[in-house]
Design a protein around this nucleic acid. Structure first.
Lengths: 215, 215
DNA sequence: CCGCTTGTGTCACTGAGTGTCAAATAGATT
DNA sequence: AATCTATTTGACACTCAGTGACACAAGCGG
C-alpha cells in the first residue's frame, strides 16, 4: 500500500499527480455502474424495498462485493454529496475578500445550481427518492450537516469574528445552517413544481426571505 | 378496540375526555422506565454499542416486547421531540396576529428553552449522545425536519403570503429551516461550552446573526 | 514460470426489525 | 368466586444490513 510504487511508470504518476491510474479508474467505473443499476432499481421498486442482494445481482457481483464499493446502501445515492460539498467549500474561499457571508454563500451555491441544471432529471429523481424513504432522508440530512463544519472558519471571518472562537460561538454555524435551509427549501419547491422554475430564482427568493434587503 | 366502552365509568371518560385511562397510564409508565434504563446504558456503553437485547433485559422484558413500546432504538432517545414540536407549534399560533415571522419563531422557541432549562443535564446528555452516533443524529435531523411542515401555513401568513401557495413557494420553509438552524447552532455552542451560557442568549445571538437588525 | 498484490465469492456471524402463535394475565360479567 | 374476553407477553422464525475471515482467482512484475 505504501510501497514506493505499484508500477514503474504508473506508480510515479500516481504519487506525484492526481492521475487516477488504472486501478483507480476501474474502481470508479464499477462504482458508476453500480450507481446506475441501483438508481434504476430504486426508482422501480423504491429504495427501502430494494435489497442490496438485488442490486449486486443486477450488477453481476456478489452482495459482499457491493460493500467493497459502498459502505452502505445509502451511500450509493448520496455519495455525490461529498464532492458537491467540497466544490461549495472551494467556491466559498474563492469569493472576494470583503464580501459578506450571506452573499458569499449565495454565490458559492451557484455550483450546486450548476450541478442541478447539468442533469435536472437526476436531481429530480434523487429529491423524489428522498421523499419516499425516511432513512435515506435522514442520512442525507446528516451528511449535509457534516458539510457545514469546514465552512465555519471562512464564514466566521466574513462575519468579522476575530480568531478562533472555537465551537462556542453559534453564529457561523447558524448562518451556514440557515443558508443550507434555503437550499433545501428551494429544492423542495423546485421538486413540487416538477423542476419548472429555475432553481436559481427559488434560491434567491428563499435567501431574501430569510434576510430581507440582502442580495 | 372500538366497542362502546371497556369499563362502565372509565369507558365513558376515556371516550369523552383526554383522561389517560388505566391502560394508557401503565403503558406510559413502562415507556418511561424503558427510556430511563436505556439512557443509562447508552451513556455507559454508547448508543451504537448497546443492543436492544441489553436494554430489554435491564428493564426486565423480552427483546420483542421492547418493540411493542418503541418502533426503533432511536425512538427511545428521540421520542420527546414530537411533543416538543407540538408545543412549539402551539406557541407559534398563540403569538399575536401582526407579529412578524422571525420574531414569532423566536418567541415560540421559548418553550424549547424552558424545556432545556427544566433539566439541563438531560439535554446536555442527549446532545452529546447525538455526537457519538451518526445514525442517531441522522434520525434526529429527519424528525426535526418533519416538524417544519405543520408550521408552514402559520409562517406563510406571517410573511404576508396570500392563500395556499402550496409547496411551490420556498419562503416559508426557508424561514422555518433557518430558525431551526439557529436552534441547532445555539445548542451545539451550548454543549461545547458545557451548558454554561444561557441557551436564550446563544439563540438570540444566532438569530440576530442570520437576520441583522431583528429581534 | 513464479511470486505478490489485489479483487472476489462463500460462509458465518451480529443486530435491527417484523410476523405469527400460543400462553399468560388483567378486567369485566354473572 | 368462577368465568369469559381482550390485551399483553414471550418464544420462535424470518429478512435484511453490515462485518470479519478465508480461500481462491486474476493481473502484473520479476
Amino acid at each position: 500500500m505504501l510501497g514506493p510504487a505499484q508500477g514503474t511508470i504508473a506508480g510515479v504518476t500516481a504519487i506525484t499527480t492526481h492521475e487516477p491510474g488504472l486501478r483507480e479508474r476501474t474502481r470508479r467505473a464499477v462504482r458508476s455502474e453500480l450507481i446506475e443499476v441501483a438508481m434504476d432499481l430504486f426508482g422501480e421498486k423504491g429504495f427501502d424495498a430494494t435489497t442490496i442482494e438485488e442490486v449486486a445481482a443486477a450488477a453481476g457481483m456478489s452482495r459482499r462485493s457491493f460493500f467493497r464499493y459502498f459502505p452502505s446502501k445509502e451511500d450509493v445515492v448520496l455519495g455525490h454529496l461529498d464532492d458537491l460539498g467540497e466544490a461549495v467549500a472551494a467556491a466559498l474561499t474563492a469569493r472576494p475578500e470583503g464580501e459578506d457571508a450571506w452573499t458569499a454563500l449565495r454565490r458559492a451555491f451557484d455550483v450546486l445550481i450548476a450541478d442541478t441544471e447539468a442533469d435536472p432529471a437526476r436531481t429530480l429523481a434523487l429529491m423524489r427518492m428522498l421523499d419516499t424513504s425516511a432513512v435515506l432522508k435522514a442520512r442525507f440530512l446528516e451528511r449535509q450537516m457534516r458539510l457545514q463544519e469546514p465552512l465555519i472558519p471562512e464564514i466566521a471571518a466574513r462575519l468579522g469574528l476575530k480568531g478562533s472562537t472555537g465551537g462556542v460561538d453559534p453564529r457561523p454555524r447558524a448562518v451556514i445552517g440557515a443558508a443550507q435551509a434555503c437550499i433545501e427549501a428551494a429544492l423542495e419547491a423546485w421538486m413540487a413544481a416538477d423542476g419548472a422554475p429555475p432553481v436559481r430564482d427559488l434560491l434567491d427568493d428563499a435567501m431574501r426571505a430569510v434576510r430581507p434587503g440582502s442580495l
